[in-house]
């Protein structure tokens, strides 16, 4: 069985409301060094599927290519 980790984030230039809110909250807490926060999704997918299929389901369902980028990493079995 193959295991994958998928990271979905907004494309550059797409406003990220939760990230912007976290940025303001951290500034309010006094963490002045924090310049930006972007919040995305982390997905773990496992099964008898190859990387090409995982990429296909990301394009089709797990991410929206209009607003999001995604990155797939294959998890090596220990």
């Amino acid at each position: 069985m193959a295991r994958y980790e998928i990271f979905v984030t907004y494309k550059n230039g797409i406003f990220d409301p939760p990230g912007a809110t976290a940025e303001r909250a951290l500034a309010n807490l006094g963490y002045e060094g924090v310049e930006s926060v972007q919040i995305g999704k982390y997905i773990r997918l496992a099964g008898d599927v190859d990387l090409a299929t995982v990429t296909e389901v990301c394009e089709k369902l797990l991410a929206n290519p209009v607003i999001e980028d995604f990155r797939v990493e294959t998890v090596e079995e220990a």
């Binding site: 797409i14 406003f15 990220d16 409301p17 939760p18 912007a20 809110t21 929206n64 209009v66 607003i67």
Partner: peptide, 10 residues
């Protein structure tokens, strides 16, 4: 075209 994101201000 386009997409709908979470409201600004959440």
């Amino acid at each position: 075209p386009g997409a709908l994101l979470r409201n600004r201000g959440l």
